[in-house]
Computed example of a mutant assay.
Amino acid sequence: MPPKIHPLRNGARLVGAAFAGLIGILLAYATAGMVGGALPSNGAWTEPESGIRIYVESNGVHTGIVLPQVGGGEDWRDLLRPEDLRDPRYARYSHVSIGWGDRTFYLETPTWADVKPLTILAAASGSERTVMHVDHVPEPRVDADVRSILLRPEEYRRLAAFIRASFRSENGQRPVHQFGYGPYDAFYDARGRYSAVQTCNAWTGDALRHAGVRVGVWTPFPVTVLGWFA
C-alpha cells in the first residue's frame, strides 16, 4: 500500500511553497525595479547653468515634485487654492509639493510605520481611485531626502503640463479635494490607474521624463528617482 500523506504535513508543504513563491516574486520585482531605475532615459540631458529650480523629495514611501507656487510662467494658485487647506495661511508658502498615487495607500501610509501588507497588496493589484497629494511648503533645503534640479523654461512647461493633466476635472471644473494629513496639505481626485508597475514613484519619474530630464526608464521606488540627482 502507498504511504499515507498526513494532511497537516501536506498543508505545511503547500504553505511553504506558496511563501517561497511569494518571496521569489518580490525579489524579482525588486530586481526589475532597481534595473529599470538604473537604465537612463533622456541620456543626453544636462542640467543648465540657470533656469527654474525645482526639487524632488521623498518621505521614504512617496516622492513628490516641489515647484515654485508662482514662477517659470506658471501660477499654481488657480488650481491649488487656500480654501483647500484646513489652515489657509499655509498657502502663503512659496512652494507646493505634488505627488500622485493610490487613494487608500496615500491616505493610510504617510510614513513606513503606517504601511500594512494588505494595503500594499490591494494597491499593487490595481486601483482606479487615484489622488494628487499637495503640500504647501517653504522652499526646501537639499539633504538626503531632497534633490535640486534646474530646468530650462521649455522643460518646466512640459513638466507643469504633465502635472496639470494628472488632476481629474470634469467639464473644465477644478478637481474635488479633501483635507490632508495636517493643516498644510490636501488631496485631489486624479487621473490614471495605480498598480505595482505604475506606482507613485513611477509617476514622479514619468513626469521628469516627460519634461526631458535624464532619469530611469522605470522608477517604482524612491531611491530609483532620487538616485539620479546630486
Rank of each mutant, 00 (worst) to 15 (best):
H6Q: 04
L8E: 10
L8R: 15
V15Y: 09
G16M: 08
G21D: 05
G21A: 08
L22A: 10
A32M: 12
M34T: 03
G37I: 10
G37A: 08
A38D: 01
S41L: 13
W45M: 07
T46A: 10
I52M: 12
I52W: 11
I54C: 01
Y55F: 15
E57L: 09
G60M: 05
E74M: 03
D78V: 06
L79D: 02
L80I: 13
D84N: 09
L85D: 05
R86A: 08
Y90F: 14
Y90G: 14
Y93V: 00
G99I: 14
T104E: 05
A113G: 00
T119D: 12
A123H: 10
S125Y: 12
R129A: 11
V131C: 01
V137N: 10
R141V: 00
D143P: 06
A144D: 05
D145E: 09
R147F: 06
I149C: 09
R158F: 00
L159N: 15
A160L: 03
I163P: 14
Q173A: 09
P175H: 07
Q178F: 14
Y181I: 01
Y188I: 03
D189G: 08
Y194C: 01
W203T: 13
V215K: 14
G216M: 11
V223E: 05
V225G: 10
F229W: 12
